[in-house]
């Protein structure tokens, strides 16, 4: 063993530096993903901070993991799911959409993408965000969310159809 490995002081410093570098590289994207999930920049900031805090707490265990990005998404999504379970969707107080908006929806009534996302189930929203905003493969999304590939495909198809319904045909 080298001196560096046996000196706990320098090991600790390196791990902290590594962690800081990871946060600096990934914070902006993770915050944006959090925002797409919750439609609120303050809350997004909060959720991202909590994600990094949890990751730091387990940093020694996860720092060598093959996919820290995937891990961070998993922690973030779990926080989002927990939150929506606790609040049981009460944060979304928008009026219900008509059942069959489709073609009749006037352009001025079209919702912004984030508003449309907010009206979906949190699981469907997560699939859309991870798959299309973050560009992860179906397999990676499945791993992040801890569900099977076919569940991801099914939710993705359902969520895209719903999105098209809300945002219009040319979407």
């Amino acid at each position: 063993m080298t001196d560096t490995l046996t000196n706990p002081k320098s090991t600790a410093r390196t791990a902290d530096e590594e962690f800081t570098a990871f946060v600096e590289a990934s914070a902006t994207r993770l915050r944006r993903t959090a925002y797409l999930m919750c439609r609120d920049w303050h809350l997004a900031q909060d959720l991202t901070q909590q994600t990094f805090t949890k990751m730091y707490a387990s940093w020694k265990r996860i720092r060598t993991s093959a996919n820290l990005e995937g891990y961070s998404r998993r922690v973030l999504m779990n926080l989002v799911f927990d939150r929506s379970k606790r609040r049981s969707g009460s944060e979304i107080v928008l009026a219900e959409l008509p059942d069959q908006p489709g073609r009749e929806t006037a352009p001025e009534l079209r919702l912004a993408l984030v508003d449309a996302l907010a009206r979906m189930g949190v699981e469907d929203r997560a699939v859309l965000v991870l798959r299309h905003a973050e560009d992860h493969s179906v397999e990676t999304v499945a791993t992040i969310l801890g569900v099977s590939v076919s569940v991801v495909k099914m939710r993705n198809a359902r969520a895209l159809a719903r999105l098209r319904e809300m945002l219009g045909d040319d979407f």
């Binding site: 902290d16 800081t20 946060v23 600096e24 902006t28 991202t48 990751m55």
Partner: peptide
């Protein structure tokens, strides 16, 4: 957001 501050707070 200040990502450096986020890292420090997480530590």
């Amino acid at each position: 957001a200040d990502v450096g501050a986020m890292a420090a707070a997480a530590v």
